[in-house]
Design a protein around this nucleic acid. Structure first.
Lengths: 253, 253
DNA sequence: TGTGCGCCTTGATCCGGATCAACCCGCGCG
DNA sequence: CGCGCGGGTTGATCCGGATCAAGGCGCACA
């Protein structure tokens, strides 16, 4: 995000993330950009932002960003890589809650319980902007657009989870999942037609509440129907409209 | 809520809701009480609250409080009665999203899309405190505890929806549903052991993503197992711990 | 008083997706 | 090199819950 670009250079402890010259573009496509931009415009608030944003990472695949039960101190915007969040219930079964791409924000569901209610695990090497929440919250009081932004992020996530909670067929779920991923990549400036699935089939299955075998079968079927091309984790969407139509009951619009 | 008690008496257009002498208790048990109380303590803010809270209702069973697509102007706290929220997808199938009891808040998921993403329908004659959201949001900027309260409400709802999204058996879902209702009634000062189900079986089924027949069967089974007594919509929980244990994977704690 | 209609219950059958099982592939490692 | 192992695919079977079907209230209304 734009502001972290600025704040990052000024941060007292040398940031573990080296500037790659692409930060400006990254910040524009980040979920927080409007908030950061709003802050960046007023000099005094810029100071506040320096205090509350921090670059952290990299986390290697499989590493925990936070764990269920950790005290809630900050929310995280993904700078690079991919993250999954999940909970494990009393009998040890994992439940994947979501996948997060660059520019997206994790940790909002920790506000109410005041501790993280889920684990966050890197699926690929990942880096983050870390926003201390008390400071963020205080800032939100002074800068209305930041407050509004947080409300919207929360409300948006609420809508997303709600859709997944419906009862839908394996085909609908899968089509909606791929379309959603595609549109999220596109929104961040990546290709929405051809991309790499950063998570194993088992995680997709778990997230969609299906068995891994079912995911495999549905993908094979989609391929034979000419909707997608897929080889390992490399995906190309051949018929975006067809795919979207299949998943329409699960998708916004 | 306490503050609406005060504000209600002063409202210029005579409130359609007559005071029943129980408002003070009601406000204490409302989801908004801490926010309202915080505001009520400072004289100047009290004025603000008068402007943004309004008593509305009664809505009779079956009436819409708001409809999907309506512009988002306000959130609603249930004062009395019960409400369900639901969406209908493209092929006309209804999807129940939640049931809301006195003291609970609806409309938060409308913030992001800036229009209501679902219908809200009274299940029993219902009355509300209506909070204009722009004013509420402005107030939240000035009174940090109000902002915090809204964040928490949103985050809490996010957690609740997430649980329902998991894949669980009909028994687990049903047990968790009844336990949840029980605890919510208890939290508002009603009996959590014996209460009236204000929604038809079909709505429960839809909410839990089951068939109405399955709901009926599971309830019969629970009865024969001595977990509950049920006759029509009158429910008594005979074995709260047993029921809670059955649904534990879906419940907080 | 009868009739129709929502709502609920219970039984019989069916089906989507889970589970079990076998196998393939690529890769790290002794 | 041979081996184990995690991840992926595909086939065979099984099962929980959906669907279909029938019947029983309780209640509004002619």
């Amino acid at each position: 995000m734009r502001s972290s670009h600025q704040a990052g250079r000024l941060a007292q402890p040398p940031s573990p993330i080296t500037d790659d010259g692409d930060e400006e573009h990254f910040c524009r496509s980040c979920s927080f950009s409007s908030a950061c931009n709003a802050v960046g415009q007023g000099k005094p608030e810029l100071n506040a932002l320096q205090c509350l944003v921090e670059h952290v990472g990299p986390y290697r695949s499989g590493q925990y960003v936070f764990r269920s039960g950790d005290p809630f101190r900050a929310i995280f915007a993904v700078r690079s890589g991919t993250v999954k969040t999940s909970v494990v219930d009393r009998d040890g079964r994992e439940q994947v809650l979501g996948f997060y791409l660059p520019g997206e924000v994790i940790g909002l569901n920790a506000i109410y319980p005041d501790q993280f209610p889920c684990d966050a695990i890197a699926l690929e090497t990942a880096q983050f902007c870390r926003f201390l929440f008390p400071a963020m919250s205080a800032l939100a009081s002074r800068v209305p657009v930041v407050q509004q932004h947080l409300f919207r992020l929360l409300s948006k996530e609420l809508g997303a989870v709600t859709l997944l909670a419906g009862d839908h067929s394996a085909d609908e779920r899968m089509a909606a999942f791929l379309t959603d991923l595609s549109e999220r990549y596109a929104a961040r400036g990546f290709s929405g037609i051809s991309f790499h699935l950063s998570m194993p089939r088992g995680d997709i299955a778990n997230y969609l509440r299906l068995a891994a075998e079912t995911v495999s079968r549905v993908l094979s079927r989609f391929r034979s129907q000419g909707l997608i091309e897929i080889e390992g984790r490399e995906l190309t969407i051949s018929d975006p409209q067809g795919l979207r139509k299949l998943g329409q009951n699960l998708l916004p619009d």
